[in-house]
Amino acid sequence: MTTLLFDFDGTLADSLSAIVTITNRLAPEFGYRPTPWEKIEALKGLNARQLIQYSGISILKIPALLRRLQTELRQQSTLIPPCAGMPTVIQALYERQHTLAVITSNSPDIVRTFLATHQMQDCFVNVDGGGTLFRKGKLIAQYLQRNSFDLAQTVYIGDEVRDIEAARLAGIRSVAVTWGFNQREVLAAANPDWLVDDPEALQAIADAV
């Protein structure tokens, strides 16, 4: 069976609106440019590093901003909807006896509350997270080492260029999904092993690995 490691925001959870609302409210306090709603689609064409540069936030302020963002997301975690079609696909993957886990830059307790709210908590063997925006590759590698998974039968599923990069750093293949925070063209340019537009495509990938 395949081990499927999932990103959270933009892959499992449709949290973009909540994140933009919170970060726009915090913009004056942290001294960066807020995100106009009419520019959301265009900004999906930027990877995480380019988005940081666009916002004008000081690199030194990012850890504190992430902590504040997670504090506020924690209060809304029962209200965040799943990405369309994902609960059904997660249940199907679980019933096929694939191993599912979440590895995210977000806080694990936010993820666990979300999964419980949407009756997906029993489908996942583990939730791992925290750290910085660009530490995910190390998080994945450490998780793989602790669990002795077969790298050839393990994939990381995410919605951003940094997810593809993290999987590559950890020595596993990547699945990029197009319903999240980065545009399809940007994801394709990062050369994921699979690029999918429909959650149901994940079932075929899992069965084929």
Rank of each mutant, 00 (worst) to 15 (best):
V127N: 07
A208R: 13
L51D: 01
G45E: 13
A166P: 01
A201T: 03
I22L: 03
P192T: 09
T71V: 13
L60I: 10
K138L: 03
L4S: 02
S174Q: 06
H98W: 04
T113G: 08
V177L: 09
S105P: 00
L51H: 00
D159M: 00
N191A: 15
K61E: 12
A18I: 08
L133A: 09
V155E: 00
V102I: 12
A141T: 07
V161S: 05
I57W: 12
R168D: 10
D159Y: 03
L144A: 07
Y32P: 02
Q119F: 14
P63G: 10
A176W: 02
L12M: 10
R96D: 10
P63L: 11
A208P: 02
Q50G: 09
L69M: 06
A27R: 00
Q153R: 15
V125L: 13
L43C: 15
R173C: 01
P36G: 05
E72T: 03
V177N: 04
Y94Q: 04
G180N: 12
A27I: 00
T78C: 09
T154H: 05
R146M: 11
P28D: 06
F8G: 04
T2A: 10
E160Y: 03
F134A: 09
F181C: 07
P87K: 02
V127E: 04
K138E: 07
L139H: 13
Q203R: 09
T178Y: 11
Y54I: 00
G158H: 06
R184W: 10
D14M: 00
V186R: 11
R74V: 10
F6S: 05
E165F: 06
S174L: 06
A201R: 00
E185F: 12
P82F: 01
F124R: 06
